[in-house]
Design a protein around this nucleic acid. Structure first.
Lengths: 316, 316
DNA sequence: CGCGCTTTTGAGCATATGCCCACGCGTTGG
DNA sequence: CCAACGCGTGGGCATATGCTCAAAAGCGCG
């Protein structure tokens, strides 16, 4: 008898669900039709949902992205995750994620109460800054996580922090140091000097860190940009380096290496695990291991990527 | 630019729809996530619906029934339609529709204000009456649309009106006449006598008519039950009879025939088109033409049937 | 056959939703 | 170049919804 009752109840739930979602009636109308109180109609509708009698299918490329984002967020316990549709025109385009990063920056910077935004490396981050809509927020602070003096002593060819400050009127704190010092001692000395300590202090209070994620292979951006030599790169790879964030190399488990260039880096190291909202932005098959490692190691607690990359990360 | 905008708008609509229906967020939350006002979030969700980006799929046998009922209601402009799931155990079972008819009677009789219910022939109607939950409604009236004296002069073997009156304490009006009179003249005489005129008058004011639908073929119930002879049946079939309601034979277009047994019938004829809520109850492949004709001719404005029959009617 | 326990019901309330209005921005036609 | 138009926006209100709580109805057990 219980089974009979359950069945009839599910039938009613299905009817209610049909009338509600498909026919578009209100629960009041359904209650009258099924000869029950409105409260019961509501219960039937939720039962229909709870029993998964009804399923929603979103016929739109976005649906897959939302799904992937939700799974990534769940799997890696992220505070923020966005997956943009793979652009059929240019599969490798950074444009999509740059757009989303810009959006994230926009909404963060829109706040009236002062916020501190820390920026790392990466093409996506640079492109995002370009797309930020100008807004007057003189009380915000923009701080760089990486040195902006390149190997040859000139200012880095692309000053993200400065650009973003331009667009917001915010105070900004570039890091007036080379990416790498010549020795560990020298690095330790430099990071203690006043202007650098100040930058570190501001960065430590950042509300948002937006960082690129680089893979550590022959095409590592840190090498292509001339920040590390071929030999230094290979040495790190031998040590197990699989990716880098603001230059800090880490292995397949997301553990920061305590060797090689990491000893001479001036960049502000990632928190482990990330407590501050730390959003990684990266796309591309080559970066999948690096991104996955960063997620697993808790180097980042947010991710902006594209559909193909997200899928690859989840399939590992 | 317009196309670009539209696309991005649809993307947002898809996102909103996903977040609303699949992730189960409120529109307020979605508004915050997408950086728009709540009103806009609501618009995006309805846009998602309007553009059919999202579809609902109800994974339950009932869904098909609801769908069929809605189509029948639409197609034949019915005031009421119910389709019960085909019972895998007994495909021909009248049980399902009897249950629904009983339900219909229950809810009609539950009313505190006096109602008049008129009953026709049919196994489903008889079975329905048996399942009506007893309730005390002495001010209701139950009236028969057909004579309850069978060919041999005894009271009809099954007195639906009396049974229903038993269960409700309602006044009841059986029709104290044979199903068929021996001639048209005699019929015309009889229907004018006081008790019969009274029954007709009550029936004319009925709030609900519940009638069975019979097919007119070798297995016609009116013949099996002995109300019409084989010859009478064949004569009506020659005249084009395809179905009958309370004995009144009609052709494939649902037009009442003006010949044969119809001239000697004591039953109260159907309204054409039905104005009173007139619910036909019937199942079975054999009855499909009869039901379809009754619907097309407007002899009934409501239908209770099963899934297979509903599908067959719609596919004609 | 009655008592207590579990399940279901219906009223009421806080919240979410749908929709109307006036407004502002961008667009188009003169 | 300007004005009219249209579209999207956000505020505000009436309605629908989800949920809680106490009461009723089953239901099983003694």
């Amino acid at each position: 008898m219980a089974a009979e009752n359950d069945k009839s109840r599910l039938d009613d739930a299905a009817r209610a669900g049909w009338l509600y979602f498909i026919a578009g009636h209100t629960q009041d109308e359904i209650a009258k039709m099924l000869q029950v109180s409105r409260a019961s109609a509501q219960r039937l509708v939720s039962l229909c949902l709870a029993e998964r009698l009804i399923t929603f299918r979103l016929e739109h490329p976005i649906a897959a992205c939302m799904e992937l984002a939700a799974r990534l967020k769940e799997r890696f316990d992220l505070v923020h995750c966005e997956v943009v549709p793979a652009d059929p025109a240019s599969p490798q385009a950074t444009a999509g994620i740059a757009e989303r990063c810009a959006n994230l920056l926009d909404s963060t910077l829109r706040s009236e109460t002062p916020v501190i935004v820390a920026l790392g490396t990466g093409r996506a981050v640079r492109a995002a800054v370009e797309r930020v809509t100008p807004i007057d927020r003189p009380n915000h602070q923009i701080v760089s996580l990486v040195g902006n003096i390149s190997a040859d002593g000139s200012a880095s060819f692309y000053d993200t922090v400065g650009r973003l400050a331009d667009r917001t009127g915010a105070r900004h704190y570039p890091m007036p140091l080379p990416f790498l010092m010549s020795s560990e001692d020298e690095r330790n000395k430099m990071v203690r000097i006043e202007p650098i300590a100040k930058v570190k202090a501001v960065a430590a209070r950042a509300d948002l860190r937006l960082v690129g994620i680089g893979q550590m292979d022959q095409k590592a951006q840190v090498h292509i940009d001339g920040f590390v030599t071929r030999d230094e790169l290979f040495e790190m790879m031998r040590q197990g380096a699989i990716g880098e964030i603001t230059g800090w190399a880490y292995d397949a488990k997301g553990r920061l290496l305590k060797a090689g260039t990491n000893k001479r880096l001036t960049s502000i190291p990632p928190e482990v695990p990330a407590k501050t909202t730390t959003i990684g932005a990266a796309v591309g098959a080559a970066k999948v291991p690096a991104i996955a490692a960063a997620l697993n190691g808790g180097l980042i607690n947010g991710l902006i990527t594209d559909e193909a990359t997200a899928r690859a990360i989840l399939e590992r």
